[in-house]
Computed example of a mutant assay.
Amino acid sequence: MPKFIIEDDFWSLFPQAKIGIVICQGIDNSIKNVEMYDQLLREAEKEAHQFLSLDEFSLNPVISVWREAFQKFKTKKGARCSIEALLKRVKNSNEIGTINPLVDIYNSISLRFGLPCGGEDIDTFVGDIRLTQANGKEGFIPLGSVENATPYEGEIVYKDDEGAICRCWNWREAQRTMLTEQTKNAFLCIESIDETRSDEFYTALKVLSELVSHHLGGSVKVEVLDLNNRETTIIE
């Protein structure tokens, strides 16, 4: 029964954070309708322009709040929050391509609500998942690479007993735990550090779970971790 645990060293930096998770079991993530997911992303890109009202990209609130957060821990030079990377593509009129249903769904939610979203294949996990500060010794093969890129000591990471599975909090995911068309059980998350956007956070979590359930079947479980609720069992 693997657990998701958020360690004290994370809360010492971000006591106001909320981490919403959607545990998906028995889903069908195979690609059946590329056009539908492409349309989902195109509509989400249109909605994302609401978060780009200021001409100076980095001053838009959904970006600046994460720029400030990334200054609180050691990061790889140039590392940015995942929502910033998506919104930069929207600003530059570069379409977000389809990957597989789960990734397309959570990317669309990220764009619609201006919140970072991510996901991993539960069946690849080794032991518990922890959101914590890295010790600087964790193995990490970035998505699309074959070379180890160990996190810095003190860097915020998601990790299991095998190594890091997402570096710089939500910047770069691991090849080992990536979602594929064969994924049957998935760990999805939405992260919020802006207390003024609590309503959007909970709505995004609800819509994410509903889209997965509607399109991919299986069962979904939703939970929110915060300072007063720091761990949960992933699969009973």
Rank of each mutant, 00 (worst) to 15 (best):
I5K: 13
P15T: 01
Q16K: 15
K18S: 12
K18H: 13
C24V: 12
N29C: 06
S30I: 05
I31E: 05
N33L: 08
V34G: 12
Y37L: 07
L41K: 12
R42Y: 04
R42W: 11
Q50G: 02
S53L: 07
S53Q: 11
L54G: 01
D55K: 06
D55E: 04
E56M: 03
F57N: 00
L59F: 05
E68V: 12
F70D: 09
F73Y: 14
K77H: 05
L86S: 10
K88L: 15
V90T: 05
S93T: 04
E95K: 07
E95M: 15
I99W: 14
P101K: 14
L102W: 10
L102C: 09
I105D: 11
Y106M: 10
I109S: 10
R112N: 08
F113R: 11
P116H: 03
P116I: 06
P116L: 08
I122G: 08
T124E: 03
V126W: 06
V126P: 14
D128T: 03
Q133Y: 07
N135K: 08
G136Y: 00
E138L: 09
F140Q: 03
S145R: 14
V146C: 15
N148H: 13
T150N: 00
G154K: 03
G154D: 06
Y158M: 02
K159A: 09
E162C: 11
E162V: 01
C166I: 13
W169P: 04
W169I: 02
N170T: 15
W171E: 04
R172P: 02
E173W: 11
A174Y: 09
M178L: 10
E181Q: 06
Q182L: 04
T183I: 05
T183R: 07
N185M: 05
N185L: 09
A186Y: 11
A186T: 04
L188W: 09
C189N: 12
E191Q: 14
E191K: 01
I193E: 12
D194H: 06
R197N: 05
R197S: 13
D199K: 11
V207A: 10
V212H: 09
V212N: 11
G218P: 14
V222H: 11
V222Y: 15
R230W: 03
R230D: 00
E231G: 04
